[in-house]
Design a binder for these strands. Structure first.
Lengths: 253, 253
DNA sequence: CGGCGCATTGAACAAGTGTTTAGTATGCTG
DNA sequence: CAGCATACTAAACACTTGTTCAATGCGCCG
């Protein structure tokens, strides 16, 4: 289970070597920023052979997508109790492979490669299942909109990976370095346990505003009203007066 | 303050039209995936004129970067009390521009354009200042590692924007649509107020483990030990046994 | 050994790339 | 009006792109 995957740069079949080289290149420079000849050179073959094996550059991309979905999601069909900790340990022990795969995944998301949708959906499903279990056994809080929360948590989980370049730059070491992984653990847990806000003032205000604006809290309900300004009716004294501060910060950025 | 920016697609100077077309193209298809002739065609000029005005394609990129930093971060030099709510309202009222700018910013991050570093640093500084004020006035919880928390919060804030394509697909409407913005508000606030975990069990365990592993909790301290496995010493019964679940989920993805 | 099939290649292809060059129009300054 | 800078273009440049083609080698099966 470990060895059969760690057969990475070595021999393997030639097509696999090409695919691996392509994943590395695509991940580092994007699909459009990578030429077949570069991939071919990395794999030690001719450009014509790449076409011979994969039909076209787009075919190569599809093969990379398929491989990555298979490799990252593995055989875990049941979203059940496959140990998350074990998975983490696995890629912590092999940061080289983790790095390449994550880079490719990030590139997939930017390039809007169709494979990214599959991967994101799998992640989202897994997160949803995890949250449901957590709520069921009482270890996690409930949510007013579990589906949306699952999307949010999934996005938050991906954030450090998508921004790994910035994090590495700011923190002074790669995201998958032991030092950074260790340093991130506690603050992340703190945030996931205590939240950010010390009191429920903003939350209560938002709830009240939404309650008064529309009758029910139906998620996908009518969307024809111009947009109820839950956000701008609180005093300007509080610097984080917006109920949705991260998006806000993002926006102004 | 509003009008001078909303002069978007219309006349303006020719160089500005080219720049705007480039931002749109770069944002949609990336730097490498965009040709000068496409940009030129969008702007209604010849490819040679683009070179004439910006020197080279790379020069055009730099001009786009500069413009975006200026446009998104505006004149807010002091990270002080410029109202976040006002900024949000501003781009909520102009989703078209917001979309383009955000797409370009996301592309900058993927392409590792140097301008992305500037923008991220500004965002991070702003987030840090916001957190410091929040802690000072008691509206926000303190953190064991404020600097890292600021990085985390910044990343979380950017996450929905970087994943806007996936969010839009899963939620059935664009991220900047009134329906989605409205729907995200409450769950986000809930998460930022209550956190995810219902009790401090995992947090306590992690703290204890770290405490016992290394003497102090110094952030950047010695990094020569192989990495203390705070993660794998808890029972397999809890599905979210890892102190750092989002990264974990990400990893296995 | 003969022959088939596959992996593999260098050379060539048309199309597209960023960039240069020479040239035309246009409007401002004297 | 002359002169000049500037905005702008079409055409060509050298080069790279993805892809094709004919050819070569190698191994397997009879």
């Amino acid at each position: 289970m470990l060895n059969m995957r760690s057969v990475r740069p070595e021999d393997a079949t030639t097509a696999a070597r090409i695919r691996d080289a392509a994943i590395a290149r695509f991940g580092a420079h994007g699909y459009a920023g990578t030429s077949l000849r570069e991939v071919a050179a990395d794999a030690g073959v001719s450009a014509a052979l790449v076409i011979h094996h994969f039909g076209s550059k787009e075919g190569l991309r599809r093969a990379c997508d398929d491989w990555l979905v298979h490799e990252l999601m593995g055989e875990k069909d049941r979203l059940g109790d496959t140990s998350v900790a074990a998975t983490i340990r696995e890629w912590l022990d092999d940061p080289a492979r983790f790095r390449t795969s994550i880079a490719y995944f990030a590139a997939m998301l930017s390039d809007e490669s169709p494979g990214a949708d599959r991967l994101f959906d799998l992640l989202l499903a897994e997160t949803s299942a995890m949250l449901e279990r957590g709520v069921a056994d009482g270890s996690m809080n409930d949510s007013s909109d579990p589906d949306l929360r699952a999307v949010l948590i999934t996005a938050y989980g991906l954030a450090p990976l998508l921004l790994r370049g910035q994090l590495a730059r700011v923190l002074g070491a790669p995201l998958d370095s032991p030092a950074v992984v260790r340093r991130m653990t506690l603050p992340t847990l703190e945030f996931y346990t205590q939240g950010l806000y010390a009191d429920t003032q903003l939350l209560d205000a938002a709830r009240a505003a939404i309650e008064s604006a529309s009758g029910a809290h139906a998620p996908g309900a009518r969307r024809e009203d111009p947009v109820p300004r839950v956000r701008s009716d609180k005093g300007p004294g509080n610097p984080v007066q917006d109920p949705d501060p991260p998006v806000g910060d993002t926006a102004r950025a």
